[in-house]
Design a protein around this nucleic acid. Structure first.
Lengths: 214, 214
DNA sequence: GTCTATAGACCGATAGAC
DNA sequence: GTCTATCGGTCTATAGAC
C-alpha cells in the first residue's frame, strides 16, 4: 500500500541530526543516544509515516516497507517499537532546541524573542508535518509528559516568550503558539498555499499573539 | 487495561447530538445518519478513547471494553470501524455547526464574529480533548479532506472570520485559529489550569489574532 | 441487542543463517 | 546489516445461537 519514497542516507542524517546543544549527545542531563546513519534513515521514514497516519496508526511493517527492508532489519537497529518513537520524537525536539540556543545567544530579550519566533516559524514551514506530529500526536505527548528534556525545552520556550511570570496563565500563550504554528501548517485549508506566503502570514499572526512589532 | 468509565445513555446522547442544523439529519446536502442511543454511546466512548490514544491507536476491542460489551455488539451498530470514526467525527463537527448557526443569526458581522469566537472557545474548553481530536488527528483530517460537510463548515468559519477575501492567505488565520484553540487546550503545559482561567486567556489571545476588541 | 466462536490478516518481537 | 521463518497475540470482521 505504501510506495517506498527512497530516502537517501545523507538527507536522512541531515534531517534527523540538527546539531543539538553540543557537538554530540545532549548538553546536560538526558540520554546520549548516538545516531547511526542506519538509525537516521529509520527515524526519517518513521516521522514521515507518523505525520500521515499518526503514531498509533504506523506499524513497523509500514516503516520497513517504506525503506525497502524487512522488519527484522529494523529490530536490529532498535530493540522495541517504543524506542523508535522516542528516538524520532527526540530528533525532532533537537531542532527546536537548536532554535532556542540561537535565541538565547541574542543580547536582549526582545531580539531573542524575534529570533525565536522567526526560527520556529521557519522550522515548522520548512518541515511542515514532521514538526507537527511531535507536538500534537497523543502517543508522543504521552511519552513527553514524563520526559525531562521535553519539559526543559517547553520551559525555556515559555520563559523566553512570556518572561519570568510564574503564574499558570503565563504558559497559555506558549501552548497556543506551539499549537497554532504546528497545527496551522497541517490544516487542509492551507495545504495548497506556498511556503513563502504561509511563512509571512504565520509570522504576522504570531507576532500579534505576543504583541511583538513586525 | 482500560477501566470502563461507564457512560450513561442520556449523557452520551446529549454529548453526541448537539442539535445540528435542523431537528433531524443535516440541513442540506450531507448524509442523514439518524443516531440511535446505542450508537451514541459507542460514539461517546470512541471519542474519549480517540482523544487519549489517537484514532489509529484505538481498537474496536478497546471501545467494546470501555462500554462493557463485546466487539460483536459494536459491529451490530456499525458495519465497519471506519463508519464509527466517521460518525464520531461528524457528531463532533455538529457542535461546530451549531455555533456557526448561532453566529449567522446575529444581525451584524462584528456581532457574529464575537459570538463565533466566544462560542468556539467555550465549546473547546468545555469538551477539551474531544473537539481537538477531530481537528488534528491525521486519520480524521484525512477523512475530512474529501468530506463535503467538513469543507462547508470550514468555509463558513473562514467567511465569518476573514470576510469575503478570496485569496489563499485569507484562510491562514482561520486555520491558525482552529489549530490554536484545539491544540492549546490539549497542551501538557496548560493541563493543570482550570477552565475559567483557560477560557479567559484563549479569548484574549484569539481576539488578538483577528484584531477584535475584547 | 447481546453473546460465543471463529476466520484470516497483521501486529511486535525473536532465532538463526548468510 | 539484512534475510527467512516463525512465535504468540491482537486486529477487523463474520456466522449463528439466544
Amino acid at each position: 500500500m505504501e510506495p517506498a519514497p527512497d530516502v537517501t542516507e545523507a538527507a536522512a542524517v541531515a534531517a534527523v541530526r540538527p546539531a543539538s546543544s553540543g557537538e554530540r549527545g545532549r548538553g546536560r542531563g538526558g540520554a546520549p543516544a548516538a545516531t547511526t546513519p542506519a538509525q537516521a534513515r529509520i527515524i526519517a521514514a518513521a516521522l514521515d509515516l507518523f505525520a500521515r497516519h499518526g503514531v498509533g496508526g504506523t506499524s513497523l511493517g509500514m516503516i520497513a516497507n517504506a525503506l525497502g527492508v524487512t522488519k527484522a532489519a529494523i529490530f536490529h537497529q532498535f530493540k522495541t517499537r517504543d524506542e523508535i518513537i522516542l528516538a524520532a520524537a527526540e530528533a525532532e525536539l533537537g531542532h527546536l532546541e537548536a532554535v532556542l540556543d540561537a535565541a538565547d545567544a541574542e543580547p536582549t530579550r526582545a531580539e531573542a524573542r524575534q529570533v525565536l519566533i522567526t526560527g520556529i516559524v521557519d522550522l515548522t514551514v520548512e518541515r511542515r508535518a514532521t514538526v507537527s506530529v511531535i507536538l500534537s500526536d497523543p502517543v508522543i505527548v504521552g511519552f513527553f509528559g514524563s520526559h525531562e528534556p521535553f519539559r526543559r525545552v517547553m520551559h525555556r520556550l515559555s520563559r523566553l516568550l512570556s518572561g519570568d511570570d510564574p503564574s499558570p496563565e503565563a504558559h497559555v500563550p506558549t501552548a497556543m503558539f506551539s499549537a497554532a504554528i504546528s497545527g496551522a501548517v497541517m490544516h487542509p485549508m492551507v495545504r495548497d498555499l506556498d511556503d513563502e506566503r504561509l511563512r509571512a502570514q504565520l509570522l504576522l499572526l504570531t507576532r500579534r499573539i505576543f504583541d511583538v512589532p513586525g
